[in-house]
Nucleic acid binder design. Sequence first.
DNA 1: TTAAAGAGTGAGTGATTACTCACTTTTATT
DNA 2: AATAAAAGTGAGTAATCACTCACTCTTTAA
Lengths: 219, 219
Amino acid sequence: MNEFKDMMEELEQADGEEKKLTPKQAQILQAAVEIFAEKGYASSSTSEIAQRANVAEGTIFRHYRTKKELLISIVTPFMAKFMVPFFAARFTRNVFDEPQEEFENLLRTILKDRFAFAAENAPLLRIVLQEMAFHPELQQRFQEVFVKDVYPKFEAALDRLKEAGQVMDRPNGTIIRMIMSSVMGFLVTRFILSPDLEWDDDQEIEQTIAFIMYGLAEK
Amino acid sequence: MNEFKDMMEELEQADGEEKKLTPKQAQILQAAVEIFAEKGYASSSTSEIAQRANVAEGTIFRHYRTKKELLISIVTPFMAKFMVPFFAARFTRNVFDEPQEEFENLLRTILKDRFAFAAENAPLLRIVLQEMAFHPELQQRFQEVFVKDVYPKFEAALDRLKEAGQVMDRPNGTIIRMIMSSVMGFLVTRFILSPDLEWDDDQEIEQTIAFIMYGLAEK
DNA sequence: TTAAAGAGTGAGTGATTACTCACTTTTATT
DNA sequence: AATAAAAGTGAGTAATCACTCACTCTTTAA
């Protein structure tokens, strides 16, 4: 957990700007998140954002030179925070784990942690998924974090799990795709497609863990 | 008489039979698909679509009253075609199957079939995934097809597979989510996120089948 | 106390938007 | 061949867009 906290703090320091917000600036960010999530970036107008934020339209451009800069300043910190625990939390072996429980515990940590985070940031998750497709700047940031940081650590963890006989011997890319599909498929269904259904969250999480674990188990 | 003819025409159009297309109309549809997929619906202008289609802008509105009607006339036939095989293809028991192979064959049919379809219609898949979030009309069409047709047949097939001991006894909604997450996760990764990677498609399909099958197997 | 810097404002601007309409050209029907 | 209907055109339009700028108000610092 120390590792996790350190990384979060580093990130916040690197981004830095989250503390020095003017009240009006915070209102702008909040309104922008809401409206971007509702109508999509391209269909959102700066005038509507200003209106909902109780701010003059010019105030937005005092803090963000363009509408796209507003989007980026919203999305990139979220993207970083969303991905950090994927490689910071439990990808290093926990000495207290029995080897045969390591995979299960890893999955449970990831799922519960990212579930809580997605629950608190559903609109932001929606914005990222929607806008990534059209903004190369966002794709690039994603690449930087995922390909350079998350993926290698994921691979290392998988190699260890394969040696321990907990995961079948398949290409890491394939295995990671399956895990990510299952995790993201759950989060997207839960918080974006059908957020109003009555969910038994703990049960769904446990069953998703089991699904991944048995799907990837050595036969 | 007139009423009857009108009805027939409406029906044929509603069925999505794209036969009576003027050459220029076909050019418009093609250009619209390309540009919607590239920039998203909201960021695409009718003037640009007209330009790429080598058509006057007014011609678009001769055939489609609004820009949104153009989108819908593109997306809904695709949506229907994409979902039909999910309940039409093999959801009824094939008498030649050994019971213990039924699930595997069902998954293989779904995956190979929808893989081929997605390969031929990647831009349309992209448009649907992007625009569904912002257009209630599209969500409604999806509901109509999926909830009323696909889901019930899916459930029936799952109940049979559970009785045959091929699928574990979990809520159908959960199982369907896991299958759809894995299938869509693969298709999205393959054709939208990383279409330019070198893929061993047959191997990926087989491993996805195995992942789902063992993930859902009775323990 | 004062001056400079930063935060906030809202009317104004040129560009772009989806869509219209009067008109011409093509196709279908008799 | 005559005529009507359908297809095609592109200049025109009102609305909206992101963004600017001259100005006021607030905060900071010496």
